[in-house]
Amino acid sequence: TITELAQTLAGQRPLLALREAALLLGGRQIQNMATVAGNICKASPGADMVPPLLCLDAQLGLFGPDGQRVIPLDGFLTGPDQTAIRPGEILREIVVPAIPPGTGTAFMKIMRRRAIDCSIVAAAARVTLAEDGKTCLEARVAVGAAAPNPFRATEAESLLAGQEITPGLAQQAAQLAREASTPVSDVRASADYRRILVESLVERALLQATERACQKGVN
């Protein structure tokens, strides 16, 4: 369950984004019943567990009448409430590749209420630094509730690779994420407001992930 995941991840700094998403998903009763697989397969535009898992390059193990197959989470969601799962298949496992040293992650979301609410916008980031503690070897940026499905902002990721992530560079990457978003207006927020939030949250998540990547601790 989501509760069990949050408890298991306590103290694991490279997976903080995943734990933060779990702790912000619904209320305690929902967390005690909901699963990560269910959150993924619902394929909601605002599925909170998807952005951090996209940043972690998660793979999905599907089992069905034709046996087992493994596919990336990135591409599994094909539209609102739509996935690449085949008739008779179930999502049996979620695999996160080994995380290299010098990695930090972060997850943030904006809600109308302080808890137990769907995301207006959510963002996750992963930053892996070189041994010098400054140069970004690899970055991942993912956004939720600002497109038909949560998505990776690949242009923002490319901008960051090989660079020192300064506040100015994080802002540039956030602008690229904003440009990649295709939000809609609904009862929670307008599309224009969501674009503003995408830029703000991505910038903040990147800076926090970078700060965490600089810290020494459990990897």
Rank of each mutant, 00 (worst) to 15 (best):
L197C: 12
M111Q: 13
G46V: 02
Q172K: 12
G168Y: 05
R113W: 07
A142N: 05
E20N: 14
Q82D: 06
A115P: 02
A205G: 12
P65M: 11
A124L: 02
E89M: 13
P51W: 15
C214M: 14
E179N: 09
V95F: 08
A173D: 02
Q175N: 10
V70M: 09
G26I: 02
T128S: 13
N149Y: 11
A10Q: 12
A84Y: 11
E131H: 08
I196Q: 13
C41I: 04
G46P: 01
V141Q: 03
P97R: 08
E20A: 15
V127F: 00
D57C: 11
A22N: 10
I120W: 00
T8R: 15
A156G: 06
G144P: 10
V36D: 04
R204V: 02
N32A: 07
R204A: 14
A142H: 01
F151A: 14
F151G: 10
G217D: 00
A98I: 10
Q12I: 15
L24E: 14
A180N: 07
G144V: 12
L56I: 11
L62Y: 03
T182K: 15
I90T: 10
L207N: 02
L24Y: 05
S119L: 07
E179F: 01
E211L: 11
C55L: 04
A47Y: 04
I116A: 15
G61L: 13
G217W: 12
A17T: 08
T182S: 12
G144E: 09
R92Q: 15
R212L: 13
Q7M: 08
V184G: 06
M108R: 14
L60W: 04
Q7Y: 09
E20D: 15
M111Y: 06
M33V: 09
A174R: 10
T83L: 02
A156R: 04
D48W: 09
L160P: 09
N219V: 10
